[in-house]
Design a protein around this nucleic acid. Structure first.
Lengths: 142, 142
DNA sequence: GTTGCTGCAAAGTGTTTGCACCCTG
DNA sequence: CAGGGTGCAAACACTTTGCAGCAAC
């Protein structure tokens, strides 16, 4: 259980006149325990394993809080549901998704990043963020 | 009105025991007339301007046909709805999206493409497709 | 005790499907 | 005239919201 992330959330909560509840702790802990790209529904299943009465709506509301506090970021691989991953203490990276088994490899290629900046600048764009997903077949599925 | 695309669709239709209808022509023509990244709802509005009785469901069903026949490809900029663009006779490119005005610039950077291949290969991935979106502020909105 | 939080159910959004009738081939 | 196509409405999947009761501060 990572106390730094709990601190980040509690700081955000106290700075916004919000309250710490056992549901919010449960959602945060389940999210932190899971080192994956998790959907709201999957996170809800994890949470209810220890706190059976937590509703899906609370999970969605807490995820919004995690995003606002900078702990989580939203992903969309185009499969109809949003996914979430750790953001705090987790540097930028892109995703390579196996379309057979769903495995996701994270990677970062400094030159790709650099050329993106270059393309943006060349078009007069101020880049705020970007998203690169590579789809393919991983070596186990080939 | 581009006869090549109509030919592609009619070929696909005749090869699959399907039928050509005025609704399908209307959807295809509206799609071809519009050189943008259009949503199903927007395309439906365009179609009903000339064919008022065409239903949204038919638009979705025809879009599926366009995708299967290789005329259209699906985009998802993470705003909750899918968008579609011309694919036939339109080479690969990525998107730069202005988060202020929604303007989309298409670009292609050969080195970025090359490094993606390289990263995939390095991880034992056989790359089948990829998607790069850069979000930022365009020069008019700055 | 105030004010925010929760669970539930209902509403929303974008997309898909079932069905009776219609039209193409 | 057979079999696919259409419009409509209902169903769907995911997410958000309204509300009365509950709990943190």
């Amino acid at each position: 259980m990572s106390s730094k992330e709990i601190q980040v959330l509690e700081d955000y909560i106290s700075q916004h006149n919000l309250k710490i509840t056992k549901q919010r702790r449960a959602v945060l802990n389940a999210f932190l325990d899971c080192e994956e790209h998790i959907s709201a529904d999957e996170l809800h299943k994890l949470v209810t394993a220890t706190e059976p009465k937590v509703g899906l709506a609370t999970v969605y509301r807490t995820i919004a809080l995690l995003i606002q506090s900078g702990l989580a970021s939203e992903l969309d691989f185009g499969d109809g549901q949003k996914r979430y991953e750790h953001k705090y203490m987790h540097s930028h990276h892109d995703h390579m998704i196996c379309t057979e088994c769903g495995k996701i490899i994270e990677f970062n290629h400094p030159l790709i990043e650099k050329f993106q900046e270059e393309v943006a600048a060349r078009n007069g764009f101020t880049m705020t963020s970007h998203k690169l997903d590579i789809f393919g077949i991983c070596k186990e599925c080939r």
